[in-house]
Design a protein around this nucleic acid. Structure first.
Length: 996
DNA sequence: CCCCAACCGTA
DNA sequence: GTACGGTTGGGGG
C-alpha cells in the first residue's frame, strides 16, 4: 500500500444488525432461510466495488476488507465484567446470517477478518491508523458512533444505507465535539446497550457542553468542583472512576495483532462464476443478473453453490474458521477440506415458526423416544429392479441410512456380505415418521452344516451388479449418507471401488455431544435415544464356538438385523443432528470429526511395511535372553514358578523370601510393579532386578516382536492399524489391532523394534513431531508470561522452570535440578498432586508439596487456570478445548474425595491434552490438500498423538519436509491464533527408529 | 468362553 | 498426577 491508495474497511457485524433493523419486511429464501441482511450486504458490496465513485464516497477502492467480531469474549470483558453483559441473544432470524455474510464476503473474493479477543472496531481502528500513517485514504463503511473517534482528514466513514459520507464536520454537527473528543464524550454519556456505565444524568448534549468548557475528561474530572449544578457536580465527583473505566472501554485499540498485512488487502478482480454460484444459491435474482452482465458470464450455466450454513444451524458459538481469510498467509487447503455434506432440503426447511434450535432439538428427542420402530417396513431386496427403486427413492429424499454387513470387524479383511438402506418418508413430521429399510443380501451361503461348503444361496443380486447400481448413490454429493462408524463402511466400499461422498456419522455426533458421559456404540445410542433395544449381533450370528460369519446367517434373520441397523442409524441422525446445532457443536463436528473419517480411512488403507525378518531375529534374541533370566530367577527363588503371575511372584518375594512389601494393589495383593521391584533392588536384593529385566524382555517379545507379524495383511503385505475416532474423553485418537501408538522408544532394546518399521524401496519414512505441544498449549490457555517468552525465544523450557523455581542459572545447571523441574511441568499438565509428584521423584510428600507451592508462587497464572478450570467443570459437568470440544466429567461432584480429586485432575488435563489433539487433527485434515497443492506424493501413514509419519519418495523429501512442517505449525490457524509458536521437528530415514 | 486385574508400552 | 491398548494369569461360569 502506498500514499494515495484508498482502503475500504467494512464493519460486517455492525452491518448485519443495522440492516436487520432498517429493513423491516423480512426477506426469506424459498426454504425459509432469512436473508434480508445478506441481501443488503451483497448489494452494498457490489455497489462499492463497481461504482464507489458514483456514491458519496467519490473514490474507487484499491484495498478492501470486511471485518467481523470474533465472539463476545474480548479484552473489554476482562477490564469490565459487565461489558455487553445485558445484551440479549440476537434474534432467531439473524443467526444464520452471520455465517452467510462471511460466505458472501468470500464469494466476493474479499478478505474476511476477525481476531480473537478483539472487536471488529479495534481491527478497523488498527488498519485505519496503519493506512493513514502510510498516507492512504480510508473509508470505514459503518455509521456506528463507536467508530467516529477514528475520523480524521484522511479517514472518513460511510453510511451505506443513507449513502452519506461522514467527515469531521459531520461528527461535530451530530455530537457537538470533534472526532478526537468522541472518546471522552462516550465515556461521560455511557452506552446502555453495551453496558458502558458513563456518568448518570449526563447525555450527549451536556457532555459536549462540559467538554467544550473544560477541554477534556481528565481536566473535567479534576475540576469537577467548579460545576455549578449541584446534582451534576455530585454525580461527576461520585462517578469519576466509572467515567475513567468507560473511557477505557470505548477507546478503540490500534495495536491488534493482524494476520493479514495491509498489502494483503489489495483488491483482487472478481471471480464471476464463484460469485454467481453464491448469489444463485441465495436466490438474489436481480443482483445475479447484474453480476452476470458485468462479468460477461452466462448465469444459466452456473450451478448454485452448496451453502454451508443451514437454517437452524450454528445457533451458538461462532464457527471458529468462519473468518478464513480469502488470502490466508499459508494455503492450508482449508477450503477443500470443508464440509461437503449439507442437510437435504426436506430436513432443513422447518422450524421457521420461530422455535429455537434448543426447542427443536428437544422436540426431536421427545418425538423419537416415543416413536416405535416398525419391522414390517423392512424388506429383503433380491432383484435389481427393486434395488433401483430404493436407490431412486434415496436420490429423491436426499437422505439415506446406510450400513454394510461383512464377514469381519476388520475393514481391510472384511468381505461384503450385504448392505442395507433406510429411507425416511416424512422427515418434516418426525412424530409421524415412517422409516422403511431394505437389506440387500449379496453372498449369503446355504446352511452352515452344508457339507458341500455352503454354496451361494439363491435369489441374491450378484455383488458386481448391485454395487454398480449403488455406486452412483454413494458417490452422489447431493445425497447425504448416514452411517454409524462410517470409517468401517467407507473402507469396505473403497475396497470395492466406491468412494462415499457426503456423509454424516452418528457415532461421531454422539462423541461430540457426550464424550466422557456415554458410550457411542449403536446399541447404546438406540436404547438411550430411541427407547429401542436392537437385535444383538450374537442373537443372529451366535458367538464363540457356535458363532458364524454373517454370510452364514439366514437371510430373513439377516434382514431383520441389518435393516434395523440402517433404520436405527437414520433415526439417531434425526435426533442427534439438531442437538449439535443447539449445543453450538456443529463446528467441532464438521471441522474436527467428520473430515477425519476419510483421512484416517486412507491412512489405514495405506498401512506400513514391517520387516518380518528383523522381528523374527529380535524375537529369537529376546527368547534367549529371557530364558537366561528364567534360570537365574528360579535359582534365586529356590524353585520354579510362573514368573508372569504377579500372585505367585508376590508369594515368592513377600512370603517365602520375606522381603518387605511396598504398595498394595486395589484388591489387597502386594504390588509387584516395576517401581516396587526397583525399590527392592536398591536395597541390595538380586531377584527383583532380574524380574524387572525379564518382564521387559518378555513384554517386548509377546506384545511386539511376536504379535506384529500376525497383523501383516496377506495381500498388501503391510500392517493396517485401526484408528478409533471416538474412544477417548479428550479427543485423542486411539490405535488398535495392532496398537501402533505404543511402539517402544524409551529403551535401546525397545527401539530395535522400531527399526522393523521400514519404507518401501525408493522411499523414506518421515517422522514429524510437535515439540512440547502440551506445554505450549498450557502457556497459551493459562497465558503465562514466562512460558510464552521462553517458547518465543526457543529456550529450554524445563531449565527455565528450574531456574525460576530454584534460582539456579540455566548455564551449567545440574541435570538433577532440571529433571525435577521437568517432572513438575509434566505434573502440572496432569493436574498435579503432591502424592503423584512425590511418587515420580522419589521424594517425601511434604517436599513435593513445597515444590508445588513454590511453582504456584512463580507461576500464579497456572494456579488460576487450574482453579477456574475446576470450577467450570463443577458448574457445567464438562470442560472445553480451545476449539470448543467438550470432555464430560459427570463424577466431578462425587462425594467420594478420591473420585472427586481424580475427576478434577482429569478436567485440568483434558483441555490441554484435548487442544493438542485438536491441533494435530486439524493438521491431518489440512495435510493432504497441502501436499497435493504442492504437487507432492507423500502419503501420511500413522499418527502417534503428537507425531505424524509419512512415506515419501526419495527425490521429494527436501520439498516435502517444509510443507509438512508448516502445515503442522500453522494447524491452529485461522481458528485460533496461538500466543506461543508451535514447533515441529521432522526427519527422514529408511526406518522409524532413525526417522524419529 | 468370557471377563477382570495387574502390569507395562506410548504420548 | 493425564490419556490409551495389549498381554498374561487366573477366576467364574
Amino acid at each position: 500500500m502506498k500514499k494515495g491508495d484508498h482502503l475500504f474497511l467494512v464493519d460486517g457485524s455492525g452491518f448485519i444488525f443495522r440492516a436487520f433493523h432498517a429493513l423491516p419486511p423480512l426477506t426469506r429464501k424459498s426454504d425459509g432461510l432469512p436473508v434480508g441482511a445478506v441481501s443488503g450486504f451483497c448489494n452494498m458490496l457490489w455497489k462499492l466495488l463497481t461504482d464507489a465513485r458514483d456514491t458519496s464516497v467519490g473514490v474507487t477502492p484499491t484495498h478492501f476488507a470486511v471485518i467481523f467480531d470474533y465472539s463476545a469474549k474480548t479484552f473489554r470483558k476482562d477490564i469490565y465484567d459487565a461489558y455487553k453483559a445485558n445484551r440479549q441473544a440476537p434474534p432467531e432470524e439473524l443467526i444464520p446470517q452471520f455465517g452467510l455474510i462471511r460466505e458472501a464476503t468470500r464469494a466476493f473474493n474479499l478478505p474476511c477478518i476477525e481476531t480473537e479477543g478483539f472487536e471488529a472496531d479495534d481491527i478497523i481502528a488498527t488498519y485505519a491508523r496503519q493506512a493513514e500513517a502510510i498516507g492512504a485514504d480510508v473509508t470505514v463503511v459503518s455509521s456506528d458512533k463507536d467508530l467516529m473517534q477514528l475520523v480524521t482528514p484522511m479517514v472518513h466513514m460511510y453510511d451505506s444505507m443513507k449513502d452519506k459520507q461522514i467527515g469531521i464536520p459531520d461528527v461535530i454537527e451530530k455530537w457537538g465535539v470533534p472526532p478526537e473528543k468522541m472518546i471522552d464524550l462516550q465515556a461521560l454519556v455511557g452506552d446502555s446497550v453495551d453496558n458502558v456505565p458513563g456518568i448518570p444524568g449526563i447525555g450527549p448534549k451536556t457532555a459536549a457542553q462540559l467538554l467544550e468548557e473544560f477541554g477534556d475528561l481528565d481536566t473535567l474530572l479534576a475540576r469537577a468542583g467548579e460545576i455549578k449544578q449541584v446534582k451534576r457536580r455530585e454525580n461527576i465527583v461520585a462517578n469519576a472512576d466509572q467515567a475513567r473505566l468507560s473511557r477505557q472501554l470505548v477507546s478503540l485499540r490500534t495495536d491488534v495483532p493482524l494476520d493479514l498485512a495491509l498489502d494483503a488487502l489489495v483488491l483482487e478482480p472478481q471471480n464471476g462464476p464463484k460469485l454467481i454460484a453464491f448469489l444463485k444459491a441465495m436466490e438474489f435474482t436481480t443482483l445475479t443478473r447484474r453480476v452476470a452482465a458485468a462479468c460477461d458470464c452466462n448465469a444459466e450455466e452456473i450451478e448454485p453453490a452448496v451453502l454451508k450454513i443451514e437454517w437452524g444451524e450454528r445457533a451458538h458459538g461462532p464457527d471458529l474458521d468462519a473468518g478464513v481469510p480469502a488470502k490466508a498467509p499459508i494455503d492450508t487447503g482449508e477450503a477443500a477440506a470443508e464440509a461437503p455434506a449439507s442437510l437435504p432440503k426436506a430436513a432443513v426447511a422447518k422450524g421457521v415458526g420461530g422455535a429455537t434450535p434448543a426447542e427443536l432439538a428437544q422436540a426431536r428427542i421427545e418425538a423419537f423416544a416415543k416413536a416405535k420402530l416398525d419391522p414390517s417396513c423392512y424388506v429383503t431386496v433380491r432383484d435389481v429392479e427393486v434395488l433401483d427403486d430404493w436407490i431412486r427413492a434415496a436420490q429423491e429424499t436426499g437422505l439415506v441410512g446406510f450400513d454394510t454387513e461383512t464377514t469381519s470387524l476388520d475393514p481391510m479383511q472384511a468381505e461384503l456380505v450385504g448392505f442395507s438402506l433406510a429411507i425416511a418418508d416424512n422427515t418434516d413430521n418426525p412424530t409421524g415418521l415412517a422409516v422403511r429399510a431394505a437389506y440387500v443380501p449379496l453372498i449369503h451361503k446355504t446352511g452352515v452344516g452344508d457339507l458341500l461348503g455352503g454354496g451361494l444361496a439363491e435369489n441374491q443380486i450378484p455383488t458386481s451388479e448391485a454395487l454398480a447400481r449403488l455406486k452412483p448413490l454413494l458417490e452422489d454429493p447431493s445425497v447425504l449418507k448416514v452411517a454409524q462408524n462410517l470409517k468401517f463402511d467407507y473402507l469396505v466400499m473403497k475396497r470395492h471401488g466406491i468412494t462415499v461422498e457426503s456423509y454424516d456419522d452418528t457415532m461421531l455426533m454422539s462423541y461430540v455431544l457426550e464424550a466422557g458421559k456415554a458410550n457411542h456404540g449403536m446399541d447404546a445410542l438406540s436404547e438411550r435415544w430411541l427407547n429401542h433395544k436392537p437385535i444383538a449381533f450374537k442373537d443372529v450370528a451366535g458367538s464363540g464356538k457356535s458363532g458364524v460369519t454373517f454370510d452364514y446367517v439366514d437371510i430373513d434373520k439377516a434382514t431383520a438385523y441389518a435393516a434395523e441397523d440402517a433404520d436405527v442409524t437414520l433415526r439417531l441422525w434425526m435426533v442427534l443432528k439438531p442437538q449439535l446445532a443447539a449445543m453450538g457443536l456443529t463446528t467441532v463436528y464438521e471441522r474436527l470429526e467428520r473430515p477425519l473419517v476419510e483421512v484416517l480411512a486412507r491412512m489405514e488403507e495405506r498401512g506400513i511395511t514391517i520387516d518380518r525378518q528383523i522381528l523374527s531375529r529380535l524375537s529369537g534374541e529376546l527368547a534367549q535372553k529371557a530364558a537366561a533370566f528364567e534360570d537365574e530367577i528360579y535359582q534365586l527363588a529356590g524353585e520354579k514358578f510362573t514368573i508372569g503371575s504377579p500372585k505367585q511372584l508376590g508369594d515368592i518375594l513377600f512370603g517365602k523370601m520375606g522381603l518387605p512389601g511396598g504398595a498394595k494393589t486395589k484388591t489387597g495383593q502386594w504390588s509387584t510393579s516395576a517401581s516396587v521391584l526397583e525399590d527392592l533392588a536398591a536395597t541390595g536384593h538380586e531377584l527383583p532386578r532380574k524380574i524387572v529385566d525379564w518382564r521387559q524382555l518378555t513384554k517386548l517379545k509377546s506384545t511386539y516382536t511376536d504379535a506384529l507379524p500376525g497383523y501383516v495383511h496377506p495381500e498388501t503385505k503391510r500392517v493396517h492399524t485401526c484408528y478409533s475416532l471416538a474412544s477417548t474423553t479428550t479427543g485423542r485418537l486411539s490405535s488398535s489391532e495392532p496398537n501402533l501408538q505404543n511402539i517402544p522408544v524409551r529403551t535401546a532394546e525397545g527401539r530395535k523394534i522400531r527399526t522393523a518399521f521400514i519404507s518401501t524401496p525408493g522411499h523414506k519414512l518421515v517422522s514429524a513431531d510437535y515439540s512440547q505441544i502440551e506445554l505450549r498449549v498450557l502457556a497459551h490457555v493459562a497465558d503465562i508470561p514466562q512460558l510464552r517468552q521462553a517458547f518465543s525465544d526457543g529456550i529450554d523450557i524445563h531449565a527455565m522452570t528450574a531456574s525460576e523455581m530454584f534460582g539456579v542459572p540455566v548455564e551449567g545447571m545440574p541435570s538433577e535440578v532440571r529433571r525435577r523441574a521437568k517432572a513438575i511441568n509434566f505434573g502440572i499438565i496432569y493436574g498435579i498432586s503432591a502424592f503423584g509428584l512425590a511418587n515420580q521423584l522419589g521424594i517425601e510428600r511434604s517436599e513435593a508439596g513445597d515444590y508445588i507451592k513454590k511453582y504456584f508462587e512463580r507461576f500464579p497464572g497456572i494456579r488460576d487456570y487450574m482453579e477456574s478450570t475446576k470450577s467450570f467443570a463443577r458448574e457445567n459437568g464438562y470442560v472445553e478445548t480451545i476449539f470448543g470440544r467438550r470432555a464430560h466429567y459427570p463424577e466431578i461432584k462425587s462425594s467420594n474425595p478420591s473420585v472427586r480429586a481424580f475427576n478434577e485432575r482429569a478436567s485440568i488435563n483434558a483441555p490441554i491434552q484435548g487442544s493438542a489433539a485438536d491441533i494435530i487433527r486439524r493438521a491431518m485434515v489440512k495435510m493432504e490438500p497441502a501436499l497435493a497443492k504442492a504437487g507432492l506424493s507423500a502419503r501420511m501413514l500413522l499418527q502417534v498423538h503428537d507425531e505424524l509419519i509419512f512415506e515419501v519418495e526419495d527425490e521429494e523429501i527436501e520439498r516435502t519436509l517444509p510443507v509438512i512442517i508448516s502445515t503442522m505449525e500453522q494447524a491452529a490457524m485461522p481458528a485460533i491464533a496461538m500466543k506461543v509458536p508451535l514447533k515441529v521437528d521432522a526427519r527422514a530415514a529408511s526406518n522409524w527408529d532413525e526417522a524419529h
